[in-house]
Write a protein that binds this DNA or RNA. Structure first.
Length: 434
RNA sequence: GGAGGGGUUCCCGAGUGGUCAAAGGGAUCAGACUGUAAAUCUGACGCGUAAGCUUCGGUGGUUCAAAUCCACCUCCCUCCA
């Protein structure tokens, strides 16, 4: 039964290297072992979708649920209006209340696929902190909640220190009060749901401990916190970005194919750690994969497993199928062997695709139209298109093109309709003639 | 308030009248090698096919010619009060 498993949840987190910090370790261990607990993690609406940075806490909630605890997904309808200053180097622009409200709805839907809402006592719930903050009067808030916070200790928090100390930056009262709001969430969730644990990224440590203190003061209760590590890459670059930007969880913003490819491209030095962070494979299975890879020649199997697992979690089995179908065709298969139906399927599966007017068109222009002629500084220019062609980076339907004067017309297309342009090693674009 | 130093292309950082679209490094992108990995090597790296055009905090000036000289403005740093 789930409760039997809960004594291993913390050690599983440890083996996965998923623990950055935790409060009162002994007490927490005992607390989790002695019953089904309610655990929450918050997600602020700062865009119309979450990105893969939110995946670690989201999956961690699921891990707790699998261990028999009840997850609460908190969507920050209130905190999203304020803006978390933690480790942010500058004050951020406020978003309108209407906009944040629409984002809240989308993020509610998005987070919902990661936890189970129908499993009895440990069924998940989605909550919105706007529900318990919107109606609170300023004076009541200042008297009942604010009184428990010492500004002296708030300004000591590492998360806001640089903003306070660094010249020319500063922090508004609005952002400074963020911590109070998030702390109030924890206290409220304790009261309403008996929630006794909060998890979050390691940047949330200050906010989480704030909530623990407030809950003790307001409700004389001991609650706990655990932070998850910041996901890093071995080469020091920022995790979660690709040439074309942020990797979103929303299929309309990052296609399942692009999402799948992101994980396929994980470096060997990172991939086993990512398997621990982002999949539900047991640590033993992961170790097995690692040792099998180590003793075999050629490509590691880990990237493929990672891509399939994570894509399945975020986009479902159909997403995995579509993404791996495209990937197979483009990277392993024989382009000329694709049937017309398969080519059409590629477009449906999320391979970037552009409709072309009848007639013929210079390849250079097509590279610009499709956005493939992207310069290192993020612009699309004709000159860059030429450079790519001249440096042997462009192929059409599997043929390298080195003539920057080349024209394309339907006569050379597959089935008179399709050109598959490849720029560089990994970027593909499908052209469709009428 | 006084004294001095400084703002250069994505970042760091050279450059003090023409040979400067601007050294070098980093980042980024491409090519080669590989395994859609890493490392390494090669190339590109303001825009333009080119002629040429637009850049060196801002504005105005000196000059055949300025990132480089002058004036004013602005922002930053250090030291002294």
């Amino acid at each position: 039964m789930p409760d039997m498993m809960s004594d291993t949840i913390l050690s599983d987190f440890e083996r996965r290297e998923l623990v950055a910090q935790m409060t009162a370790e002994q007490d927490l261990r005992e607390h989790l072992q002695s019953g089904s607990r309610t655990v929450y993690s918050g997600f602020d609406p700062t865009a119309d979708s979450l990105h893969i940075g939110s995946l670690v806490p989201l999956l961690s909630l699921r891990r707790f649920q699998l261990a028999g605890h009840k997850p609460l997904v908190l969507v920050g309808g209130a905190t999203g209006l304020i803006g978390d200053p933690s480790f942010k180097s500058e004050e951020r622009q406020l978003n309108s209340a209407d906009l944040v409200a629409t984002w809240v709805e989308r993020i509610k839907v998005q987070t919902s696929r990661f936890v189970d809402f129908d499993c009895g006592g440990s069924a998940a719930e989605v909550v919105n902190n706007l529900d318990w903050t919107a109606g609170v009067g300023v004076l009541d808030f200042l008297r009942d909640v604010g009184k428990h916070f010492a500004v002296n200790s708030m300004i000591q928090k590492e998360s806001v220190k640089q903003r306070i100390e660094r010249e020319g930056e500063g922090i508004s009262f609005t952002e400074f009060s963020y911590m109070v709001l998030q702390s109030y969430d924890f206290a409220q969730l304790y009261k309403k749901y008996g929630c006794t644990m909060q998890i979050g990224g390691s940047d949330q440590w200050g906010n989480i401990t704030g909530g623990i203190d407030l809950t003790r003061r307001m409700h004389q209760a001991q609650v706990f916190g655990l932070t998850l590590p910041l996901v890093t890459k071995s080469d020091g670059t920022k995790f979660g970005k690709t040439e074309s930007g942020t990797v979103w969880l929303d299929a309309d913003k990052t296609s399942p194919y692009a999402f799948y490819q992101f994980w396929m491209n994980a470096s060997d030095a990172d991939v086993y750690r990512f398997l621990r962070y982002f999949t539900f494979l047991s640590v033993d299975e992961i170790i097995e994969i690692e040792s099998a890879d180590a003793s075999s020649q050629g490509r590691r199997s880990a990237q493929g497993i990672l891509a399939k697992q994570v894509t399945a979690l975020v986009h479902g089995e159909s997403g995995v199928e579509a993404a791996s179908r495209i990937s197979e065709a483009l990277f392993a298969g024989d382009l000329a062997g694709l049937s017309q139906a398969e080519l059409e399927q590629l477009a449906l599966d999320g391979l970037p695709c552009t409709q072309i007017q009848a007639g013929s068109k210079p390849l250079v222009e097509l590279l610009v139209d499709t956005g493939l002629a992207l310069t290192p500084r993020g612009e699309v220019t004709v000159g860059q298109a030429r450079k790519f062609i001249q440096s042997n980076a462009v192929s059409v339907n599997g043929q390298k093109i080195s003539d920057d004067q080349a024209l394309l017309d339907p006569s050379s297309a597959y089935f008179g309709r399709y050109h598959l342009i490849r720029r560089g090693k990994k970027l593909f674009h499908l052209l469709q003639w009428p």
